[in-house]
Design a protein around this nucleic acid. Sequence first.
DNA 1: ATGGTCGAGTATCGA
Length: 271
Amino acid sequence: MWVEQSWRPPGTLRIATWNVNSLRARMPRVEEWLQYARPDVLCMQETKVSDAAFPAMAFSALGYDSAHHGGAGRWNGVAILSRVGLEAVVAGFDTDSEEAESRFIAATCAGVRVCSVYVPNGRSVGSEHYVAKLDWLEELRLHLEASCDPKGDVVVCGDFNVAPEDRDVWDPAAFVGATHVSDAERKALRAILEWGLVDTFREVRGEDRLFTWWDYRAGDFHQHRGMRIDLVLATPGLAARAQWALIDRNARKGKLPSDHAPLVIDFRTDD
DNA sequence: ATGGTCGAGTATCGA
């Protein structure tokens, strides 16, 4: 039960990431979840709202400062909520054009540089969308290289739309030739990790086939057909303090769920 | 049977 899991000792920073698949549709579930999970920081993706429609007041009432990058507002949109401070907000990349989609926002929370990212869906291997996805991952790497220090405390949280390894999909045979698992996508993710980030979930949980996303169709969730594509990446010094991790499958159940579950990582802050 | 279901917005497209 969450009542026990939600407890944590003093000196812990709880960081979560959740692709909410429309904040308008998901607000009751997000508010409920914030009240029982009580993350210090929550990165959200696919808010699908404009900045003007972002419900900052409702989050404020729950004790959270917020920053949102919504742009046109029809799709994508990323946000950061924090109840431990929210400073130096940067929305988008310097290189973004006027028409660029809203897929990156960063802020400093409790001394940690927090990035919320929504990597484009490649749709099919070789398509123009697939090429754009690989380009975007390289842009993210360049942005980190230019603006962050791997010796500092940095987390990059979000929906990467890449399953890092075959054990992160329900059946590798079902994904042969598919997007999310191709060599080029995994290589682009590895290049980001090689800059100086660690997949914190794997610091804590070694089991195969633990997923963060399940297709709404065909009862995939109930039949355990999913992928682990939502990640919390942290610089090595911070990743070494990861002490607990959970994919909250309860948030994927019940009434009007997102197709993603929240991923929660607890970090020690007292050493 | 080669599908299924959501959310955008209101016909289909995107995931």
